[in-house]
């Protein structure tokens, strides 16, 4: 019984110290972590729309017409109160993973830039969708009639991954009346 008490107290003491140390470290690092996240997002958006100086997130995102595409967030890029474009974060299922991408539209609803945020497609084949060669084909397009092998060259050996990107971009273009 005496031992049990001693064990309990020792364990409690050590756990207490551990929790204290962790709370202290957490307090110190948490602000930096939060700041990092905001800065990272901002840098990403700046890269998409270099002309914008400020980004405002839309509070209500429209529902996607294509049920396989999800619209996550829409940011309006502003330069001293005048709108310079929008950035859309969308995702859809590719060959072996969910592909997240950012699409930047200019004020005249043309595609400015596309960036693949994350994907886990087949290395060497599907992963080529992140390359400029493939993504730059979309720049300047403004009608949701894109189709693989018709007006978009797919990555060779990765038609499913390529079609997924095309599907997501068509969905963004469909909403250009926003």
């Amino acid at each position: 019984m005496k031992n049990l008490l001693r064990y309990g107290l020792t364990l409690m003491l050590i756990c207490g110290i551990a929790a204290g140390v962790l709370a202290f470290t957490y307090e110190r690092t948490q602000k930096i972590i939060a700041l990092n996240k905001i800065r990272e997002k901002e840098n990403l958006l700046k890269e998409m729309l270099p002309k914008a100086t400020k980004f405002v997130m839309l509070s209500n995102t429209p529902k996607a017409n294509d049920s396989s595409v999800k619209i996550h967030e829409i940011y309006v890029g502003k330069n001293i109160e005048s709108i310079v474009g929008t950035v859309w974060e969308v995702s859809t299922y590719g060959y072996s993973s969910e592909i997240f991408l950012l699409v930047a539209l200019s004020t005249d609803k043309k595609i400015e830039k596309i960036k693949i945020l994350s994907q886990q497609e087949t290395p060497g084949l599907g992963t080529e969708i992140t390359k400029r060669d493939f993504l730059d084909q979309f720049i300047g397009k403004n009608t949701p009639n894109l189709e693989v092998n018709k007006n978009i060259m797919p990555v060779s050996g990765a038609t499913i991954s390529s079609s997924a990107v095309v599907r997501a971009i068509n969905e963004v273009l469909r909403h250009n009346g926003l």
Partner: peptide, 30 residues
């Protein structure tokens, strides 16, 4: 450290340092 409860104490010590590393890396090397 009492002999009978040494394993749980090791685990707590290791988990504490692991969490510290986790927080530091996430703050300074995202």
């Amino acid at each position: 450290i009492p002999n009978n409860i040494r394993i749980p104490i090791f685990i707590v010590v290791i988990a504490t340092f692991t969490t510290i590393v986790d927080l530091i890396i996430s703050a300074y090397f995202p």
